[in-house]
């Protein structure tokens, strides 16, 4: 039995993606860095490294440590700052034919609004992902992602500052992710993405000290996938806006689990650090699966429950 070519395109609010695979923030730089290793034009989109108002030097080393099937990182959101980003990184991104999402991180509600306003005027990005969930920054970030009222306030400030679609990226380090998700939806978010990294740590027993200089870090990779999938399932059933699933996706099968849970699209993070071609391999794997199982659209795979 042969099926017609499945349609992999998806809509995230007003955004149209050619397929549901995006690269996750912090794992694909500003896009150009991996242009020789992966065909970026074949992807649904890329989410750029988180940008703040001022440049951030990042945390002291060691910044990363491997754990079973996982990666703990405390990069500390090292980035060039919005001005340099717009001047030096954005122009070359305009040549890439894919959806470009800029990820932002503020230290106050006002800063989030300011970042959104600047990006809106700069042109060249198609959507904004608001990071209210990074566990590695002491001031800001984290607190917004764990309190529904604060999360809503940030969302509102960003929505008021831009016409671009706004995706709010949620933290898994909360007791009830659906409470935050509902608050952010009510504040006007166009979509949600989840999860960011899980707060964790490791100890170097020979040196008798935490393995990361920052003591704590964010856990990513296959180790977190079941937790992320559960949270996506719950969130999809709590809100009406599209949800982008993130967390430990390594294979097409992993991505399909998130799509069946109801995610409209997924982001690939840690695995593309290990295997730069993972994202494009996942796209062709999803297409084969849909052919085999007779699915014609991505949303047809969602489990109704």
């Amino acid at each position: 039995m042969s099926h017609p070519r499945p349609d992999l395109s998806v809509a995230i609010g007003p955004l149209r993606l050619r397929n549901p695979i995006l690269l996750a923030s912090g794992t694909c730089g500003y896009g150009r860095e991996l242009a020789d290793l992966v065909d970026i034009g074949a992807l649904g989109g890329i989410v750029l490294k988180g940008i703040s108002l001022k440049p951030r030097p990042g945390n002291p080393p060691p910044r990363i440590v491997e754990t079973p099937s996982g990666l703990l990182n405390a990069i500390g959101l090292e980035n060039v700052g919005i001005d340099t980003f717009i001047e030096r990184k954005l122009p070359s991104l305009r040549e890439i034919d894919t959806c470009i999402v800029s990820n932002i991180l503020g230290e106050s509600v006002e800063e989030y609004g300011e970042l959104a306003r600047i990006l809106d005027m700069a042109g060249g990005v198609h959507a904004i992902e608001v990071n209210i969930s990074c566990p590695n920054v002491k001031a800001g970030g984290f607190a917004f992602g764990t309190d529904p009222a604060a999360a809503a306030e940030v969302t509102l400030a960003v929505k008021e500052s831009t016409c671009l679609p706004v995706i709010v990226k949620l933290s898994p380090n909360v007791t009830d992710i659906t409470a935050i998700a509902r608050a952010v939806e009510k504040a006007g978010a166009d979509a949600l993405s989840l999860v960011n990294t899980l707060f964790g740590m490791a100890i170097d027993i020979r040196r008798r000290r935490p393995a990361l200089a920052n003591v704590f870090g964010g856990l990513s990779g296959p180790a977190i996938r079941p937790v992320a999938l559960r949270m996506v399932w719950q969130t999809v059933r709590a809100v009406g806006i599209p949800v982008i699933g993130i967390g430990g996706i390594r294979t097409a099968g992993d991505a399909i689990e998130f799509l069946m849970a109801g995610a409209r699209a997924v982001q690939i993070g840690t695995i593309s650090l290990v295997n730069p071609r993972a994202s494009t391999e996942i796209i062709s794997g999803i297409e084969s699966f849909m052919r085999e199982e007779g699915f014609s659209r991505i949303t047809d795979m969602r489990i109704d429950r």
Binding site: E33, P57, G58, P61, R63, I64, L71, N73, L273
Partner: peptide, 23 residues
């Protein structure tokens, strides 16, 4: 040497202090 995740400039994990500040 430094601990590396990607080796290709994507993760920013392999930082060492630069003289005069930054990494």
């Amino acid at each position: 040497e430094a601990r590396m995740a990607c080796g290709t400039g994507l993760c920013l994990g392999c930082a060492i202090p630069r003289s005069g500040g930054g990494y």
